[in-house]
Design a protein around this nucleic acid. Structure first.
Length: 284
DNA sequence: AGTATCTCCTGTATGC
DNA sequence: TGCATACAGGAGATAC
């Protein structure tokens, strides 16, 4: 599932490829992922994508002063950019991502140079919309601090944690507190800090808070450096793969031995409504 | 008001 | 083999 590092990776790739190109057509194959599809198409035709920013897990393309294209991949969304026979695919991993369009393709943007951007979504949870500046700002304001930006300081992090009755997992997943963390990185951060995901936030010690802060910062930073867990790049013969998968310590390791060699087994249970991985030996 | 649960979807895995 | 069922989860809606 695309989280901050995966979306950041897509953003960087698209920045190099789609900015400044005229949008010749917008074809919608599944209306469910597009908000207000008529206005959506009308507002994009013959326009250019001027710039891209990422807020949490959302991509925001500026069209002009008062028009912004929002794309949220949610769980199974995927963006595939095709130019001639070169492909860039980011987001949800599926085999043959370069085989587009396919039955998961919801929207296709065609550019003046013949290249295309395919917006795919297997479970159709993804959403895209065209909004005004005010709407965009209102939307962006709801998001908490981005843990990869300079503004993410320990002081601010600690302040967010104050007086929360939720579990740590629920806190980490909530985009209004910290933006960009999803199920994978939430589990990894808890493991890093030796804290069980179902611990209530108010019960955290100073030391644990510090470790959670540091873990969030370095895990997301490293995941961005590695291109996330799902990125596939078919531009080069070697292909840069989503390199963070091999650094995952708990996510996807249920019933396996803990990588800390503590002798424990990674367990999985539902916390905050999500499948949650942890080591009972290492995390308290 | 703040928190927990439900819901949207469909591919994949499992069970009988 | 085939059908039914459970499960995966981001985030807005709804319930408590």
């Amino acid at each position: 599932m695309p989280e901050l590092p995966e979306v950041e990776t897509i953003k960087r790739q698209l920045e190099k490829n789609v900015l400044g190109k005229d949008i010749l057509s917008v074809d919608i194959f599944d209306k469910r992922v597009v908000v207000n599809e008529k206005e959506f198409v009308k507002g994009l035709l013959n326009k250019k994508l001027k710039s891209i920013e990422r807020v949490g897990k959302v991509l925001i393309f500026q069209i002009n002063k008062n028009s912004f294209l929002l794309i949220h991949l949610r769980m199974t969304g995927q963006l595939v950019y095709k130019k001639d026979n070169n492909f860039i695919a980011g987001g949800h991993p599926i085999d043959n991502a370069f085989n587009v369009p396919n039955k998961f393709t919801c929207v296709v943007f065609k550019f003046s140079d013949g290249s295309c951007l395919f917006f795919n979504s297997t479970r159709k949870f993804s959403r895209t919309s065209l909004v005004s500046k005010i709407e965009k700002e209102k939307y962006v304001d709801k998001f908490g601090i981005d843990p990869t930006k300079k503004e993410f300081t320990y002081k601010k992090f600690k302040k967010e944690l104050e007086n929360k009755k939720v579990s740590l997992k629920s806190f980490l997943l909530n985009q209004k507190y910290i933006s960009g963390i999803g199920n994978i990185y939430a589990d990894e951060v808890c493991f890093f800090a030796f804290v069980l995901p179902d611990r209530k936030v108010y019960s955290l010690t100073e030391k644990e808070k510090e470790l959670l802060f540091v873990g969030t910062k370095i895990i997301l930073k490293k995941a961005v450096e590695k291109g996330g867990t799902t990125f596939r790049d078919y531009l080069t013969a070697e292909g840069k793969k989503g390199g963070y998968v091999k650094y995952l310590r708990v996510y996807g390791w249920a019933e396996k031995e803990c990588l800390n060699m503590c002798g424990g087994i990674i367990l999985k249970k539902v916390v905050a409504g999500r499948g949650t991985h942890f080591c009972k030996n290492c995390q308290k």
